[in-house]
């Protein structure tokens, strides 16, 4: 049996709202607070723009973890967007259980534009969690892979 030497590098999609979390990620960058390169950020205007379907699709395409970051509750640039996001994600969590996906593979975190340190800490922690969970094979659609 061949022992795999290569360390597992998860594929992680981070959806960040433009106003708080994306700015928080930029701040983490300006302060050189590193986090693993596996995290790739997609900018969305608000956490409420995230259709839970995007997360399922990401899993289907082979993502190992998906994280949504938005403004803190009460601080949404659009007043109420993150409340919708919170509800939708709560629903999604119970659905993930049903699908048999570890619900630790998705996470919602509130990161403000001032919290560069928090952004970096959250990403480090999330990547560690996903790395420990290992590859996501439950929902991966092999037809999508060449």
């Amino acid at each position: 049996m061949q022992v795999e030497n290569k360390t597992f590098k998860p594929t992680i999609v981070a959806f960040c709202c433009n106003w708080c979390s994306y700015a928080g990620a930029d701040l983490a960058g300006s302060a050189r607070l590193s986090y693993p390169a596996e995290v790739k950020i997609i900018r969305i205007p608000c956490s409420c723009r995230l259709n839970p379907m995007f997360i399922l699709k990401a899993f289907q395409r082979g993502a190992d973890g998906v994280i949504l970051c938005g403004c803190h509750p009460g601080d949404c640039h659009y007043t109420t967007g993150n409340y919708y996001a919170r509800r939708r994600m709560t629903t999604l969590f119970s659905m993930l259980n049903y699908l048999g996906i570890e619900k630790e593979r998705t996470r919602v975190e509130w990161v403000s534009a001032a919290e560069g340190a928090k952004f970096s800490a959250v990403m480090n922690d999330f990547v560690a969690t996903i790395t420990a969970l290992g590859e996501n094979k439950k929902l991966e659609d092999l037809r999508c892979k060449k």
């Binding site: 969305i44 205007p45 608000c46 409420c48 723009r49 259709n51 967007g81 919708y84």
Partner: peptide, 25 residues
């Protein structure tokens, strides 16, 4: 342009210019 409506829409009729479902996917 927050996009709250795009996710609420059951029939998938609502989209957000510049951040469309297709673009994000």
């Amino acid at each position: 342009g927050c996009g709250a409506c795009t996710v609420a829409c059951m029939s998938g009729a609502m989209d957000l210019k510049g951040f469309t479902n297709k673009e994000i996917m």
